[in-house]
Design a protein around this nucleic acid. Structure first.
Length: 378
RNA sequence: GUGGGUAUGGCGCAGUUGGCUAGCGCGCCAGAUUGUGGCUCUGGAGAUCGUGGGUUCGAGUCCCACUACCCACC
């Protein structure tokens, strides 16, 4: 892997990365395809057409179905999905949090109950790395625990300490797997994950510990899970400076366009979020002037595109009124068009951000864009 | 024409032996949603209880007439 910072503005970074599956220009927004499919009926061919750089898939979900061995036997996630560019796999750690209630956490790992057929699944750091190795993703995420942001210190501290021990095991297992003859992607990269809820001292201590492991990248996890925006930005202010400056950083699961701009400003390279896809499925459309709810009656006779000047497949051809009708009629095409629009918007937002950084206009762009996003779309 | 049945928000229905501001589902109008179970959750608007009369302290509930629709028979 090669990671080269091209320019900076304050803590904001503009970088270029080379991976086993081609380059990544950061800051970047990864498009979420949990089960190796963008929900809302967008294909990998569509992704190529809307400027996607990285597809994000989920270890736990693909392990449950169709099974990582199957994907490996078919040549890995890239061959399976016909997506040639970088793929990041989330480790399944988040499911410890999001599927809470059907799991048991021990030092060795976690026992889940499959949400598909109910059978018990054990996953620890080694298992997560093996699965991700079978998938052959470009970047594998460490197996961590994502505790509720507002959990108290007595829960967070032991949890974070265990996440560190798990990270050491992840690194060791990844090195072993990458050295095997028949590994799908021998250059798979492991990103560590910082945790600590909203406790600055725990975050900082943990960041310093994992920085010493000399990993190819570092993520900030456990944010945007119940705390306020101010708390999230504060934790980033306090924590990111302790992560290695010459490595990519990833703010997991974030967020709104404004969250992303604030994240870039605090030194984040990678983002991902279900908002553009999930909200697209629910009738929301992102624009430079805020978010529209196309289900609203006010768009019933609106013949304008979602956003004037947008080059996405929805805006080039269809009206708000038509898309609203499709959503109300629960036609799949409505979701598809909104998902394509929203991902296009996010991907191009990142392009604008990179352009602003390249051209020394970051502060100005950030200020104007935050104003605009807040101005209220109509 | 005869017999029976049904009439309660846009649609489909609950409404106990008559008792406080008439409920529910869907739909509609809005709002949530941050390392995704195409979900889920939260609010809101909207009903002269078919019409008219009667009994009663009190009627969506009981009585009478009328109207509309459904079923059967002629």
């Amino acid at each position: 892997m090669k990671y080269e910072i091209l320019t900076t503005s304050g803590r904001a970074k503009r970088a270029h990365m080379e991976t086993a599956h081609g380059s990544i220009e950061t800051p970047v927004f990864m498009n979420v395809a949990t089960v190796a499919a963008i929900k809302g009926a967008a294909s990998t061919e569509d992704l190529e057409n809307i400027g996607t750089q990285v597809m994000l898939c989920n270890t736990y979900h693909l392990h449950v179905r169709p099974g990582d061995r199957l994907v490996r036997d078919l040549g890995g996630i890239h061959a399976f999905t016909s997506w040639k560019k970088p793929v990041l796999t989330d480790s399944g750690g988040f499911q410890v949090f999001s599927l809470a209630g059907i799991r048991k956490i021990r030092e060795e790992g976690v026992t889940f109950q499959s949400h598909v057929d109910g059978h018990r699944i054990f996953m620890g750091p080694e298992e997560s790395m093996q699965i991700q190795s079978n998938l052959g993703s470009t970047i594998a995420m460490a197996f961590d625990e994502c505790p509720p942001a507002l959990a108290d210190r007595s829960y967070i501290e032991p949890s974070v300490e265990r996440t560190t021990r798990w990270l050491i095991r992840c690194k060791k297992e990844m090195e072993r797997l990458n050295s095997l003859e028949d590994t799908v992607n021998k250059e798979q990269l492991l990103f560590g994950i910082n945790q600590g809820g909203i406790l600055e001292d725990v975050r900082i201590r943990h960041a310093k510990e994992i920085a010493e492991l000399d990993l190819p990248g570092y993520a900030v996890g456990g944010l945007a899970v119940g705390e306020s925006h101010e708390q999230m930005y504060h934790i980033l202010d306090e924590t990111v400076p302790y992560l290695p400056k010459d490595r990519p950083t990833y703010l997991m699961g974030v967020g709104t366009p404004a969250n992303i701009i604030e994240g870039v400003d605090r030194g984040i390279d990678f983002f991902d979020c279900v908002y553009p896809t999930r909200n697209g499925r629910h009738g929301h459309a992102y624009t430079h002037f805020g978010r529209l709810n196309l289900m609203n009656q006010r768009y019933e006779r609106d013949t304008r595109p979602i956003e004037e000047g947008c080059g996405c497949p929805a805006c080039r051809r269809y009206s708000r009124a038509y898309i609203r009708h499709l959503m109300k009629a629960k036609e799949m095409l409505g979701m598809r068009l909104l998902v394509l629009h929203n991902l296009y918007f996010y991907n191009h937002l990142m392009e604008e951000i990179r352009d602003a950084l390249d051209n020394g206009r970051w502060k100005e762009y950030k200020y104007n864009m935050l104003e605009s996003l807040n101005s209220g779309a109509e």
